[in-house]
Design a protein around this nucleic acid. Structure first.
Lengths: 361, 361
DNA sequence: TCCGCCAATGTATGCGCATACACTCGAAGT
DNA sequence: ACTTCGAGTGTATGCGCATACATTGGCGGA
């Protein structure tokens, strides 16, 4: 880790000016081949790596895009596990049947999409998870480092976003398509749920259905619920003819809600506003010996992996999570290219995926 | 997106010098409270966001840590899915039973750990996936942006790493603990496999065992195989008394290898060097009506989520993936604090997790 | 009363690069 | 032969901040 060589070192070594060195790196075509080779040789010999900080300062853009998503607020032990040379390996039993880590899949996939698209467009990707109280500081910190910022809906207060948006383009991921100054990227929550619900109501001919909604503060959930109501209307059903309950998007919440439902009666179908809730419902039904799909149909929403491994496998509406990430980056770069663009809303298509919990008729 | 305000703007507005503005932001204690408040007021009014590029240039450190992992080399469609306002939602059947996306879990978790630890230490995290031919350019590009770089083993040629390491600390994740100039962070592959194998050999009293190794170019696999051999020695078994086959770490590979094994005879236990292979083995055994664990014991390695959802659930050695990410960042920051440190190797503890495929005796 | 000292703030500089502009030189045009 | 022009290169400057050093003013001690 000796002092890092700079353009000056490379220039001196190859007998040219720093401008030429810079040109070799930025626009090679503007330099005669002979010169270019000499410079590149010096670069390799010296182990020169251009400083992105200096480049960013001079060029007034960093070529980095930021992705901000909600943190898990988990209590993190102060120290990471330390090196263990003793090498005694404990043997433990695993009796759990729920996996809490499936919930992260959503962000993981969005991130992967963002990374892919950023790379394709010559940007690097910086990620940050919002945690607790220091969120505000984190957001401005990241904002100072990037050319554009993608934020998952509801992880950052609008006020802060507006503050940041004075400086760089901000795109909101997966929230409702509001009429505001930001770009929005999200999936067709409403139409997706409507199509699935119609499949249950009309395809399976079910009337006796319960809908488990998510938390009221989730914009995605509001759209899905609206889609469900549309489906009711499509079938000429009055809204009060079905039950609509609220849960919290978690597997445990799904279980509790399923218990409440079954305490009253047994509907023919239970539609859930997300997959985790549906998995919880499946847990309770199996435990009570109620057959799915013979006795009760169950559906979810999202398309998380765990839904493919459940018994029975879960019918759901699959969101294109990777594409969401890509589209977010795409929106940012588009605005970078043309800042005068009006705020746009991108709605990505979804897919109803039929599996055993609500099979094809 | 008006021109972003700078320290000069803030200084002018609050009637102080830029040095004072900088101090308010960097070391608030050095400024009188009255002054500090005036400056902070100006900051908010102007919507000032410090430029990380300028800060990084002046301070000679960016406070960013890079994480480089292997890309999936998937063929990425040129354009992301476009906005679909028509909102026709297709309905498709999902008959697949294998999910290729579980493989990503490993990196996702490492990333999460890295993000957590980076944040705790005041660093931002930049991620990049190595893809195809431009890998070299990508690595140096990232290297120019960060204070330290964590790289998953075997994703970047040593030569390149050495080049980069002349400038910033580099830590290698999850590879063998080689004697080189880099820091290494990995899990106790050998002891983990040894413990598990001993449990099979001695706990279950099995002699008739087949071991399915992974690709020869995987350093993790080499350590696991060595651990298995140690276990053989522990039980006084000669190596030629068992069969050791090679597969490729994939579920399909596991299936093919299982078929080959069963063509010869039926061992009492099949130990696999990773979970995916083991899942493939389970597929074949179930298909042939061979009972697990009654007829054959099966074990894996890694602790991926899919192993918790299989039937029967898979006994495995669980790697602390989140901790790996944390430890990597930890190692980098340690070296940043004291560059004279000798190269270190951190070995994180693993856990044998018993599930039905090889239950507790 | 005078000096020294420290806290608070200002001034000046450099970090490493991109780039506008200036310059050179040879080829083509008149 | 002289001008024009453009390809190739060099010179000079600024990007926005941190920080070493200089400066100021107030306070306590002798």
């Amino acid at each position: 880790m000796a002092k890092a060589p700079t353009v000056y070192d490379v220039a001196e070594r190859s007998g040219v000016s720093i401008a030429t060195v810079s040109r070799v790196l930025r626009s090679p075509a503007a330099v005669r081949e002979h010169t270019r080779e000499r410079v590149l040789a010096a670069v390799t010999e010296l182990g020169y790596v251009p400083s992105a900080a200096a480049r960013g300062l001079a060029a007034r853009r960093t070529n980095v895009i930021g992705l901000f998503f909600p943190g898990h607020d988990e209590t993190v032990p102060d120290q990471p596990v330390d090196s263990a040379r003793g090498d005694t390996v404990p043997i433990v039993d695993d009796d759990s049947d729920t996996s809490s880590d499936t919930e992260n899949l959503y962000f993981d996939e969005v991130l992967r999409g963002a990374e892919i698209e950023a790379w394709r467009r010559g940007f690097a990707l910086m990620v940050a998870a919002g945690r607790g109280s220091s969120r505000e500081a984190l957001v401005t910190d990241i904002a100072g480092r990037v050319d554009g910022l993608a934020v998952l809906a509801r992880t950052v207060p609008d006020e802060l976003l507006a503050y940041v948006a004075r400086r760089i383009p901000v795109v909101i991921l997966a929230g409702a398509q509001r009429e505001d100054a930001f770009d929005h990227v999200s999936a067709s929550n409403g139409p997706g749920m409507r199509t699935l619900a119609n499949y249950v109501l009309q395809g399976h001919g079910v009337r006796d259905v319960v809908y488990i909604a998510g938390p009221t503060d989730s914009p995605d959930d509001a759209e899905r619920l609206a889609g469900f109501r549309d489906a009711l209307a499509d079938s000429g059903l009055a809204e009060h003819s079905v039950r609509i309950l609220r849960s919290d998007f978690t597997r445990d919440g799904g279980r509790a809600t399923a218990a409440r439902i079954l305490a009253a009666d047994r509907p023919r179908a239970i539609l859930c506003s997300n997959d985790e809730t549906a998995l919880g419902v499946l847990d309770v039904l199996e435990q009570r010996g109620i057959r799915v799909p013979e006795d009760v149909l169950v559906t979810g929403f999202d398309g998380i992996t765990a839904g493919r491994h459940s018994r029975p496998r879960l019918t759901t509406v699959h969101q294109p999570m990777v594409e969401l990430g890509r589209a977010a980056v795409h929106a940012i770069t588009a605005r970078l290219d043309d800042p005068t663009l009006d705020p746009q809303a991108f709605t990505l298509p979804v897919e109803v995926v039929l599996r055993e919990s609500c099979p094809r008729v």
